[in-house]
Design a protein around this nucleic acid. Structure first.
Length: 208
DNA sequence: ACATTAATTGTGT
DNA sequence: ACACAATTAATGT
């Protein structure tokens, strides 16, 4: 069982000793679809590595939520690392988009891992870089795209991340992720359907 | 098979 | 944004 975890870690360019140490100090965590992995304003004791599945990171501010980006298998959350090192809270939450398998590493260990292993150091830099790019993309879409384009982008991103042309969501749920109203999403999806770009069924959207 | 109901989706103002 | 209509799925009889 932990074979899968080990292999995933090795793929990150981690040296054997690092993998051993991660296996030793970490623990497995399985989450079901829609489970809250990190709630807003949590103080994190552990950092989640995605072994299998898919997480989505949301910006949360008061009652509002906004989808920022996905965390794929093999990735981890730069926000959490930052959060752990500084011991601060962040107004974000992480939700399981699918049933997922995580490897939780104690926050207290991160500091020494970074010092000890070049592979880990690189990994951290790389995740920061990748997340920064994702953030930039998310910012662009909010700043420069109209809502209809944002919906399209959202669907395509989701298709990409999910590896499926079928998206099982209600208009209401999509609206929440984009921080807009259900009615707006319904109208735009209807339009897309007329244009022949999607097909709609109840709780399900098919991208053509 | 039919009726009832709740949730989701569509549309006009 | 709100209100309401229409459609769909689920459930019980």
């Amino acid at each position: 069982m932990s074979e899968g975890v080990i292999n995933k870690l090795k793929l990150q360019g981690f040296e054997p000793a690092l993998v051993d140490e991660l296996m030793l100090i970490g623990r497995k965590r399985s989450v079901k679809k829609d489970a809250v992995v990190i709630a807003k304003d949590d103080v994190l004791g552990e950092i989640p590595f995605v072994i299998e599945g898919l997480l989505k990171l949301m910006r949360s501010d008061g009652g509002n939520e906004l989808f920022l980006y996905y965390l794929n298998s093999g990735e981890t959350c730069a926000m959490s690392i930052n959060c752990c090192l500084e011991g601060t809270r962040k107004p974000i939450s992480v939700i399981a988009e699918e049933d997922s398998l995580l490897w939780m590493v104690p926050a207290s260990a991160i500091d020494s891992l970074v010092r000890k292993y070049q592979g880990f150091r690189r990994f951290v830099f790389r995740t920061y870089q990748e997340r920064f790019d994702e953030m930039l993309a998310a910012l662009d879409s909010i700043a420069f795209l109209k809502m209809d384009e944002r919906v399209i982008k959202y669907l395509l991103d989701k298709k990409q991340a999910l590896g499926s042309f079928e998206i099982h969501m209600t208009h209401q749920e999509i609206a929440r992720d984009l921080n807009t109203s259900r009615v707006v999403v319904s109208r735009l999806l209807k339009q897309l359907e007329k244009e022949g770009r999607i097909e709609q069924h109840r709780n399900r959207i098919e991208i053509l």
